[in-house]
Design a protein around this nucleic acid. Sequence first.
DNA 1: TGTACATCAGTGAACGCGCGTTCACTGATGTAC
DNA 2: TGTACATCAGTGAACGCGCGTTCACTGATGTAC
Lengths: 231, 231
Amino acid sequence: MLAMTGVRARVRAELTEEILAVARRHLAEQGAAALSLRAVARDVGMVSSAVYRYFASRDELLTALIVEAFDAVGQAAEDADASRPRDDLAGRWLAMARAIRGWAIANPQQYALVYGSPVPGYAAPQDTVDPAARVSLVLLQLLVDGVAAGTLDDERIETSRALRTDLARLREFAPGVPDGVLVRGLHAWTWLFGHISYELFGHLHRVIEDYDAFFDLQAARTGEEVLGSHL
Amino acid sequence: MLAMTGVRARVRAELTEEILAVARRHLAEQGAAALSLRAVARDVGMVSSAVYRYFASRDELLTALIVEAFDAVGQAAEDADASRPRDDLAGRWLAMARAIRGWAIANPQQYALVYGSPVPGYAAPQDTVDPAARVSLVLLQLLVDGVAAGTLDDERIETSRALRTDLARLREFAPGVPDGVLVRGLHAWTWLFGHISYELFGHLHRVIEDYDAFFDLQAARTGEEVLGSHL
DNA sequence: TGTACATCAGTGAACGCGCGTTCACTGATGTAC
DNA sequence: TGTACATCAGTGAACGCGCGTTCACTGATGTAC
């Protein structure tokens, strides 16, 4: 047990991190599809088979990168959210939205890895579920705070019983937030990732040039729609 | 010249179509990353080098598939739009949104090819620009009709001069549509593709089960936001 | 503290595979006179 | 209508490349007594 924290264990941890760092760089430079165990091994200065002492397969390495990416967006969103006063809902939303977009622009391949097309032949294991949820919890907490503070109004929605059940299940992570508010929040959410993807994947090319202004304008609009314009 | 429509030309057209058909099937089954000239050639019953008589490179084959995909969404949107009375703006929007989502669900790999992460190492040539724009023109026409009919109200927006210029340029394809309406339309647009991607790429997994009801609810919300709730 | 044994990291070769693209060629189909 | 030539489609072999994964192995590091 003590040995687990001995030299061998420390070297192992360092090398694991080094492999990940190289893999991260390859991902950033070439994208997930071009990520190869052999190339990573070469850059680490190992023979390719040695990597198998650290990661059981290419998929496992990919999983590690996916978890990292989800954690990074989550962290960015949490930090941004925490940078505003708790009762400044609009400010928190805008800060969070900008932080997520900022992270995406700074790390386009990592963004594409988790929010773009699924990697062919790769099935996300259970390990990615919690990290994936992290960023969404920031939004849900925003809704919780807004409802608790009484600044977020419910609205009537008409929909299926099945969707009511879905929303009730989601409410476990957003206690007290009524369906109408949840639906507005989800709408903002899909808009946000839609906007970022649309921009990042080139669909605004030759249409919009002032990307930042366009995003800010739309993010503010979205904030008003979710939070109510009386803020 | 007459010979161009002779046997050789007809066989050539047929074989080109057959190669495309096989490529389309491979794309649908395996995704763009796994699309290989050699595999396509095998399935067509040709030697791989023979495909080069029809497509100069793998990228050119991919371009053809991209153009097809853009045309298919465009067609679906146009058909849906045309299925409603011209003055039923909300109906047209909803039909169009559903048609685009329906096409995406029926053709997930083709959707991912054009609206997902860019294919690494592939640069979209000029040929894809017009087909790509086709689907967007349906929305813009909707806005034009709404403004012309007087049912779409402008709103004040505050933004940069650069974005004003962008919007003015976009207005060439939507004569008479003021900035406020354009911005609402673009918001709906990014929401739509965001929602579809979010759903299709698995981010609603274990969150929403009644996908259809969820989409319809949100699409209706979006319609009200763009068109005004007085419809 | 010293020794025998077990664990582990890393090597190097190999397996089996697939890819895009080029090139010299054969034979069939079209064109010009 | 018949013949000589040009065009074109498709073949088969090759180039040069990279990949994930396995396996028997060496040598170093740790563990137990």
